[in-house]
């Protein structure tokens, strides 16, 4: 564990020294500040509008962060041969993946929490109270971000960075669909599509922007179960990613 944590620290430092994270963070914060400037066109309450679009923007931001931070880590390590001395001597492949994931997850969490603070600041600037459930929603958003990060790592072991982004986006869209929406994609094979939907992640459990924006109370147990689901699926994705990584030759 000590080895993995040390490598996570190295990953963390390395990511913080690259410009990518700051670029994505600026885009997210600019988008959030833009939401505060858009007229609500009669939507009931400007605060509802800001929270609704703000949380949606943060969800997209979580995906951008996952892609921006992780899609290039392994291909870059392989291309620049930095992976060779690491994997040859001090690290096992599990420790490499664990360290890289942990480092990226910490950077992503910090960026997302900073973005949530930005959303809270925009609400405050406009004179609105921060919804009570925004804090647990932020943590759920972080879990969703970690799940997406695991997905990006999984794809990065068998595809190129330009293909990683559309594949992650595709999974992001598909996993937001309801069973009915998913079955309607291939209506001729409803049984197969239902089974497939069952296996694919249900990222719709993280989508709680509507109740929060409209001030409906979300039970605490929901947050806990959704977080547990997200973390379990993240662990599953990382296990699959590791299984793929272990079969890969480092030419």
């Amino acid at each position: 564990m000590r080895t993995t944590l040390a490598f996570a620290g190295m990953t963390l430092r390395s990511l913080l020294r690259r410009r990518t994270i700051y670029g994505i963070l600026i885009v997210i914060l600019l988008a959030l500040s833009g939401i505060g400037q858009v007229p609500s066109f009669g939507v009931e309450g400007e605060s509802t509008f800001i929270v609704d679009f703000g949380l949606f923007g943060l969800e997209i931001g979580a995906m951008l962060l996952a892609i921006g931070l992780a899609s290039n880590i392994y291909p870059r390590d392989r291309e620049q041969r930095t992976a060779m001395p690491l994997l040859a001597v001090p690290l096992s492949r599990g420790q490499y993946l664990g360290g890289r994931f942990l480092g990226a997850a910490l950077v992503q969490a910090a960026a997302l929490l900073l973005s949530v603070l930005g959303l809270m600041a925009i609400l405050a600037i406009h004179g609105y109270a921060v919804p009570g459930d925004l804090v647990p929603a932020a943590f759920l958003l972080v879990v969703e971000g970690w799940f997406l990060l695991a997905v990006v790592f999984f794809f990065s072991f068998w595809t190129s960075p330009p293909l990683n982004a559309p594949l992650t986006l595709l999974l992001f869209i598909v996993s937001q669909m309801s069973v009915l929406q998913f079955v309607s994609l291939v209506p001729t094979a409803p049984g197969l599509m239902r089974t497939l939907r069952l296996i694919l992640p249900h990222m719709d459990v993280f989508r709680i922007k509507d109740p929060i924006a409209h001030d409906f109370a979300v039970p605490d147990v929901y947050f806990l179960l959704a977080a547990f689901y997200g973390l379990a699926y993240t662990a599953f994705m990382l296990s699959v990613a590791l299984a793929v990584f272990r079969t890969r030759d480092l030419k």
């Binding site: 190295m10 390395s14 041969r81 001395p85 040859a88 001597v89």
Partner: peptide, 18 residues
């Protein structure tokens, strides 16, 4: 085994911000 070996790769490259 890993604890007992040292490896000098050909044309090594490292995280250059370190």
């Amino acid at each position: 085994v890993r604890a007992r070996i040292g490896y000098v790769p050909e044309n090594p490259d490292y995280e250059d911000s370190f």
